[in-house]
Every structure is written in structure tokens, then in C-alpha cells.
Design a binder for these strands. Structure first.
Lengths: 263, 263
DNA sequence: GAGTGGTCTAGACCACGCG
DNA sequence: GCGTGGTCTAGACCACTCA
């Protein structure tokens, strides 16, 4: 069923260059294999946390050598879509059961480390459906007025309220999301999104600014309105660069800092 | 001269497992090759911007197959130490002549893009030798009281002062650095460090916080002391994770934002 | 057309996890 | 001991750059 030609049986491998090819965009075989694996991931052929077929099986299925599927998997693993475990297999990455609890949260405590601090305590302040504003619609690639789920919550570490955030989710993908669900799930929110809605966040972009909170925001975090806060606007994407979540967070940075690595 | 055994001529490749090996730390051949190439980079056998020998030459030199040096180079390229250019060769990465002017600066203008904005205008406020405080010494792996070069400067974009930063450099590696030099060099400061001092910054860690400036800082940026600013503390490393620069910057975030990508 | 990196294959063997 | 991913090799051919 795959569209990859079996080069060996043809006697000559002509990757991406058929007789009718007009656009000279050369695409190596392993990229095509990568695309096929990605397609299977998107369509749920293998679920988060499950093992995908072995390299040998995939090589047979796509009629290519093991080395070629290897290179495809290497790239998907580098993008954190797959996880290789020697001796066991290759697994679909998941936000649950991941050693690092919050993969996208860069906030670190000034003293002690993130493990002593333990998981965040969540308080849901609000959770309701609303219509997308022009701004939210643009970010999520919706039309103004489309249904979105809006959540407002506070995250506390060691009983200290540290993050106040607003979340917007496309209504069509998150039908029936309740405050209960947001509050009661043990573990990362993104793990719950995978389990209950089949939406897997793959990467995100953040824009950071220093701001002063308004009165309501200051109260939500229990700080004075003169306390500068780190504003973090996050756009999270699923497969194929489809935006699936907009978040606006205010982080306290008197007890924590935002850590970044530059390469 | 290399310490890599020629497996082919021995009839059996036993990577990392000699007769005397006691610590079972298995290290694949390509990792050893990577180490050898890294060593040559550190010791200036090939300078930033220059081409290194071809894969075939390196394979002959280290007595391994081309595929093995390929994998070593792949990793070094992924770490931004080398740059591959098909048809031309593999080059030592450099902060000069790099398409992205400032590789470590994540600040983006709110309107327009970074290219229209052009290069930063630098104003050196101070540049002198001093003794390392306990804090600076700890960051740079020096002893308290060791000589360091201290620089204070303002960066402006489109004539608007945007970044106020302090820089500490180990005195032993930056002997003779002058304010003139800091001001007059065209291009990234890190490119000047490579050319004039042979110090190449390879990666960095940043800690971000929202802060309010003191009176002097506010004046330096031409903002009110009530303007929240993004505090960015950066530790930059050369090869082998040796810290070579501490920077403390205050970024205006009313006209710019700090961009980050999460994977 | 020569030289460089990039792709693809086929096969051998090694390290790891688990029953 | 088997199956998985990981390493290493040798050789063929392709795409790109430049003289």
C-alpha cells in the first residue's frame, strides 16, 4: 500500500526522480519513509507509549534496507516523536511516563531541584466554552467567533502560587473538557490531552516579556502589583505544525527562574 | 599517531574492549573518532571558517571506514561545531560569516524582522580589569580575586537603547582586551573573540527573570524605573564545557520579545 | 570532470533487556 | 537464547560545487 518503489527489484534506485518529475525537488528515500511513519503516527496506527514495529519489520514493509528506515527513525527520535530503547524497541513518545515531568516547562526553583519540589498543585479558576477573539483565532488558525475552550488556573509549587495562566484550545478538538478533568488528572496536562482527546503536543514556541500584573493578576498570585512577572506566551503544535493550544502565563521569578540552553 | 586501533588489519574490531579494560564503559569507535576531531579543533589544527580534511582523508588517517568518521562528523555538526556543505567540504563553525548574525541573541523586534533592524549599535560604557568577586569566580571556575576583564555596554537597535549588559571574562584568556576593540569590531562580539583571542563560544545557558531596574540602570536604557525588564544571565562555554564568559543583561521588552523554541 | 558530501544497500557482529 | 537497537564495514551511485 505504500507509495515507495522497491528499488532493489527494479534493478535501479531512482529516489524521487520518476519519468514525469518536473519539480526538481529531490527527496531522499529515508525522507519518504519518515513521511510514511509520521502518517501512521498521526492516524493513530501506534498510540503514545506503544512500541512501533522493529526496524527489520519496517524495512520489509517499505521494501527498503534496515539502514534507510534507521535514518528515518533517527530523525523522528531527534524531533522527540519517537524514543529508542536499546534491546527493547522504538516507542511513540508520550508526555506521560516521561522521566522529565513537564517537558515544556522551563521554570526551575532557585534552591533545591525540580524533583524535591514535586508536582504542581493545580487550582482551576475558570473553565468554559467561549467564542474566539480575533487574536485567539489568528493564533489557533480558526475563524473569529469559532468555539474555543478557555481555562484559567494557578499552579503552585510547595504551596506557593507561582504560575497564573490562561489556556485557549480549539473547541472542535476538545469537546467536553471540564474543570473536573483539568483538576483531577494526575500528571502533566498534556498527557491528559493525549489520553482523553488524542491530541499530542509535539513542539511549541514561546515569547517572553517582563510585565507588571494588573490588580486581579497580582491577587491571583498573592503578590504586590509592583512585582515584575515573566509573561510567557506559548503556542503549542501537534503534528504537521497545526497549532492546538495558546497559553498565556505569568511566572513569579523571585523564587524561580526560566532556564534556557543555547546551542 | 592516533590511539585508535585499526580493526580491519587485526581481523576483529573490539571497540573499547582491550585485554586490560576494567571499567566496562563501552565507547563506540565513532565516539573515539569524534574525540580526536574535537581535540584537533581545540588545539587549532583547523581554524574557524576553514575546511577540515575530507571524510575519505580522515577515514584513512584514523584507519576506519568512511561511515564511521561520517557518524562522528554528524554529531559534531549537530552540536554546531562543524558545518557541512555538500560539494564543498566540512568547515569549522564560526560566529563570523554566519547567516544568522547573533546566534545566541534571542531578542526579536515586535514589528518588522531582525534583518530590517540591522546590526546593533554598541556603546561601551566601561572596560577595565578587576578582581573576581566570589560570585563571578564561581561562575567562571576561577578563584576569588583572580583577574577578570569587566565590560559594561549598551546595545541599541534603530537608535533605541534596548540592552544594557555587563560582561565578565577570565583575565588569562583575554589579556589586552580594550574598549576600542569592543567598540570598533564590525560583527558579532563572539567573532572578535575568535579572531583576536582564539576563544570560541560553543554553547551557553541562560537564566531569565523579570526585574525592575535601579535608577542607574533605568537611566542607561532611557526608561522609567517602573518599567519591568527582562534580566538574562548567560554563562557561555568553550570546548570541553569550560566556562569563558558571564553576562548579565537587561532587555527592554516593550519593543522586543525573547523568542524560544521548545522541542 | 574531479572532488566533496549525501544516499542506499547488504551483511557481520556487538550491547542490552528479558524471559 | 532470542529479539531489539547500535556499530562497523565496503562498495556503488547520486547531487552539488567549482575550475
Amino acid at each position: 500500500m505504500s507509495s515507495v518503489a522497491p528499488p532493489a527489484s527494479d534493478g535501479a534506485a531512482v529516489p524521487g526522480g520518476g519519468a514525469l518529475s518536473q519539480a526538481p525537488a529531490f527527496s531522499p528515500l529515508y525522507q519518504q519513509i519518515k513521511g510514511l511513519i509520521l502518517h501512521s503516527l498521526q492516524h493513530g496506527e501506534w498510540k503514545p507509549g506503544e512500541a512501533i514495529p522493529s526496524e527489520i519489520d519496517l524495512a520489509a514493509r517499505f521494501r527498503v534496507s534496515q539502514g534507510t528506515v534507521r535514518k528515518a527513525i533517527d530523525e523522528l527520535a531527534a524531533e522527540n516523536l519517537l524514543v529508542r530503547r536499546q534491546g527493547k524497541g522504538t516507542f511513540v513518545a508520550t508526555h506521560a511516563e516521561q522521566q522529565v515531568q513537564y517537558r515544556f516547562l522551563r521554570l526551575q526553583p532557585d534552591r533545591g531541584d525540580v524533583h524535591e519540589e514535586g508536582p504542581a498543585q493545580r487550582t482551576i479558576l475558570e473553565c468554559r466554552r467561549q467564542r474566539a477573539s480575533a487574536e485567539v483565532a489568528r493564533a489557533l488558525a480558526l475563524r473569529t467567533g469559532d468555539g474555543v475552550v478557555y481555562v484559567r488556573r494557578v499552579l503552585a509549587f510547595a504551596e506557593v502560587p507561582t504560575i497564573l495562566e490562561e489556556i485557549w484550545l480549539p473547541g472542535h478538538a476538545f469537546k467536553g473538557l471540564t474543570a473536573e478533568q483539568m483538576a483531577s488528572y494526575q500528571g502533566p496536562t498534556y498527557a491528559m490531552f493525549e489520553l482523553d482527546f488524542g491530541v499530542r503536543m509535539v513542539r511549541a514556541e514561546e515569547k517572553l516579556r517582563a510585565v507588571l500584573p494588573d490588580a486581579a493578576q497580582a491577587e491571583g498570585l498573592g503578590v504586590s502589583p509592583a512585582t515584575p512577572l515573566l509573561s510567557v506566551e506559548r503556542l503549542a503544535y501537534t503534528y504537521n505544525d497545526v497549532p492546538m493550544e495558546l497559553r498565556r502565563g505569568l511566572y513569579r521569578t523571585d523564587t524561580h527562574y526560566y532556564r534556557n540552553e543555547l546551542n
